[in-house]
């Protein structure tokens, strides 16, 4: 069984660096014995959050950076991801499940993050997303 982990790092604004930090976080959760259901939800949420930061926040600008602050205990994962973009208002993102938006090929990332996380908060004008996922108990998984 692994130990609680805490780290704060700044990565370059590319998806390969994003994948790498994602693998690191999921790897630590595996070591701490989180269920496959927890790993699935966190991997998906991290992917969406990192793509949002790199692509939509920093607009693929290689001069910009993404900060990832992470804390994983046996009971809970908490990650804050901050980009250097202009921010956004989460309430301005249209609901992708309405009839008129259902066929739009984008806009589902935040919805999936909300569904797979215990808590999601946007701070710093939308530049920071704070995500938490509590360990799923054995009865729930």
């Amino acid at each position: 069984m692994g130990s609680p982990v805490e780290f704060d790092l700044t990565i370059s604004n590319d998806t390969v660096a994003g994948q790498s930090v994602q693998e690191r976080i999921v790897g630590h959760m595996e070591e701490l014995g989180y269920s496959s259901k927890d790993l699935f939800g966190v991997r998906l949420a991290l992917e969406e959050a990192l793509i949002n930061a790199i692509k939509h926040g920093n607009r693929m600008n290689p001069q910009k950076k993404v900060r990832v602050e992470c804390s994983i205990t046996e009971q809970r994962l908490r990650v804050a991801i901050t980009d250097e973009g202009e921010g956004f208002k989460p309430e301005d993102v249209p609901d992708p499940t309405t009839d008129e938006n259902l066929e739009r090929p984008c806009g589902r990332g935040i919805m999936l993050m909300k569904a797979f996380l215990s808590l999601i908060e946007f701070q710093n004008g939308g530049r920071t997303v704070v995500m938490e996922r509590s360990r799923t108990s054995e009865e729930e998984s």
Binding site: F40, R43, L44, E47, E48, I51, E103, R104, P105, C106, G107, R108, G109, M111, L112
Partner: peptide
């Protein structure tokens, strides 16, 4: 085993 919203976008297109 995993699929993101960007992949869903391609499926919709």
């Amino acid at each position: 085993e995993y699929l993101s919203s960007a992949a869903l976008g391609k499926l919709i297109t």
